[in-house]
Simulated scan of single mutants.
Amino acid sequence: MHTDAFQTLADPTRRQIVEALRSGEQQVNDVVGKLDIHQSGVSRHLRILLEAGFVQVRPDGPRRFYSLRPEPFQELETWLSSYRGLWEKRLDRFDEALQKRRNARAAHAKERKR
């Protein structure tokens, strides 16, 4: 997992392009129409995504179709999943602490009613 993946996806325009391509293969002008970004900007960001391995291009005569490649996203998922357990344990402990606090408050309120 390279930090370059995070640098690549840190740009909001590139994230918007990735979101636009989630629905499938598209030409540059299709992405331009969805994002209301000038064609040269979309092309520049697509080139960066292509160089980083997030997208692939399929030429079809004069047209070029862009689509997402699953591999870099799978690498991101693998990397993130290594931290998921850490956060789940912390969230479980937080939930337990909240439950204890709620139970203590409920017991205290019950005592006050007596």
Rank of each mutant, 00 (worst) to 15 (best):
Q99K: 13
V57W: 04
V42P: 11
W79A: 13
V32I: 02
L9R: 05
R102E: 11
R58K: 09
E51H: 15
A10Y: 09
R14M: 04
N29A: 07
E51F: 08
F73T: 07
R22S: 05
R69M: 05
P62M: 03
S67D: 12
N29Y: 12
A20S: 12
P70S: 11
T78S: 12
L49F: 01
S23M: 06
R22K: 15
H45V: 02
S67K: 06
E71S: 07
K100M: 07
V42I: 07
E77P: 00
L86S: 07
L46G: 09
Q39S: 12
W79C: 09
V28N: 14
V28A: 14
Q27G: 11
L9D: 02
A20H: 05
R14K: 03
L80T: 13
D92I: 05
S67I: 03
D36K: 09
G53T: 08
Q56K: 12
K100G: 01
G41M: 11
Q99S: 14
H38L: 03
Q56T: 14
L91M: 15
R84M: 08
W87P: 03
L49M: 07
V42F: 00
P72Y: 13
D36P: 04
G33Q: 05
F54C: 00
H38R: 07
V55T: 15
P12L: 04
R47W: 02
L86R: 15
R58N: 04
R63H: 08
W79M: 10
Q26Y: 03
V55L: 03
L80P: 06
F65Q: 03
N29F: 09
R14A: 00
R69S: 05
I48F: 08
L50H: 13
L80N: 10
R93F: 03
Q56M: 06
R58L: 09
A10T: 08
R93K: 14
Q16Y: 10
Q26N: 07
L49A: 03
R22M: 04
A52T: 10
R93M: 08
Q16V: 01
S43T: 03
V42A: 04
D36E: 13
G41E: 10
L91E: 11
R64P: 05
F94N: 02
P72Q: 07
R84T: 15
V28W: 02
S67F: 10
A97S: 14
I48R: 10
E19T: 14
Q26G: 10
E88F: 07
L76N: 06
W79V: 13
R44S: 09
R69H: 00
V55E: 04
R69F: 01
Q74D: 11
D60V: 12
P62W: 02
S81A: 12
L80Q: 11
R47G: 04
N29W: 09
E19S: 14
